[in-house]
Amino acid sequence: MFSNIGVPGLILILVLALIIFGPKKLPEVGRAVGQTLKEFKKSARELTSDAIDDVKKETKDVSDTFTK
């Protein structure tokens, strides 16, 4: 998604963010975005591990049925 932005695009985005939010508010906005991404990744990891655990449990149940 962001692979096509490049350095000039990032500089433009940073300048626009600086103009919109101002130099005092920009670190707070960055921190909030970082925390949001961190929580999203954590939730995605938990969902993935729960799904994998469910599949492993179902697979074990099926294999136990066939081995009896």
Rank of each mutant, 00 (worst) to 15 (best):
M1S: 06
M1R: 01
M1I: 03
M1K: 03
M1F: 03
S3C: 05
S3T: 05
S3P: 00
N4T: 05
G6A: 00
G6R: 02
G6Q: 01
V7M: 02
V7A: 03
P8T: 01
G9W: 04
G9T: 05
L10M: 15
L10Y: 11
I11E: 07
L12P: 00
L12W: 04
I13E: 07
I13M: 13
I13F: 08
L14K: 14
L14W: 08
L14M: 10
V15W: 06
V15C: 05
L16D: 00
L16I: 09
A17Q: 04
A17L: 11
A17G: 05
L18S: 14
L18M: 13
I19W: 09
I19H: 01
I19R: 10
I20D: 00
I20Y: 06
I20N: 01
I20L: 03
F21T: 06
F21A: 11
F21S: 10
F21M: 03
F21Q: 07
G22M: 04
P23L: 08
K24H: 04
K24P: 00
K24V: 08
K25S: 08
K25A: 10
L26Q: 00
L26Y: 01
L26M: 05
L26K: 03
P27L: 01
E28T: 12
E28Q: 11
E28H: 06
V29P: 02
V29Y: 01
V29T: 06
G30Q: 03
R31W: 07
R31D: 13
R31Q: 13
R31A: 10
R31C: 07
R31F: 09
A32M: 09
A32K: 14
V33F: 07
V33H: 01
G34E: 07
Q35T: 04
Q35H: 12
Q35K: 13
T36G: 07
T36M: 12
L37G: 06
K38N: 10
K38L: 12
F40T: 10
F40L: 12
F40I: 12
K41L: 15
K42C: 01
S43G: 15
S43V: 12
S43E: 15
A44K: 12
A44V: 12
A44M: 10
A44E: 13
R45V: 12
R45D: 14
R45M: 11
E46N: 10
E46A: 13
L47T: 10
L47W: 08
L47N: 15
L47A: 12
L47C: 07
T48S: 12
T48Y: 13
T48P: 00
T48N: 07
S49L: 15
S49C: 06
S49N: 14
D50G: 05
D50M: 11
D50C: 02
D50K: 15
A51G: 02
A51L: 10
A51D: 04
I52K: 04
I52N: 04
D54T: 09
D54C: 05
D54R: 15
V55Y: 10
V55K: 08
V55M: 09
K56M: 14
K57M: 09
E58V: 08
T59W: 06
T59Q: 04
T59F: 08
K60C: 07
K60A: 12
D61Y: 02
D61A: 11
V62S: 05
V62R: 13
V62T: 09
S63A: 14
S63C: 07
D64I: 03
D64A: 04
T65V: 11
T65W: 09
T67I: 12
T67G: 03
K68C: 03
K68E: 13
K68Y: 09
